[in-house]
Amino acid sequence: MDNGEKLRHVFAEALGIEKDRVLDTLEYNSIPEWDSVAHMSLVAALDETFDTMLDTDDVIDMSSFARAREIMKKYGVEF
């Protein structure tokens, strides 16, 4: 599984949605499943999967799936 697919998988698992719903256009708070509670689970899962410790600023800035990919690049995750 490449990192793009891993990221999609983490989102699907953490938000409890089907993978095909994880699109670049998916935004925080745009679906009931991605609320603030799920966001914290998502951050924990990203840290675990990619061995990172995201800055609080990046946690707040992670407003979409596309943005998440950009943020993860800052931590050396290649897509």
Partner: peptide
């Protein structure tokens, strides 16, 4: 903040 992340997991 950081401890909670590990515990949430």
């Amino acid at each position: 903040q950081y401890a909670a992340r590990l515990m949430i997991k």
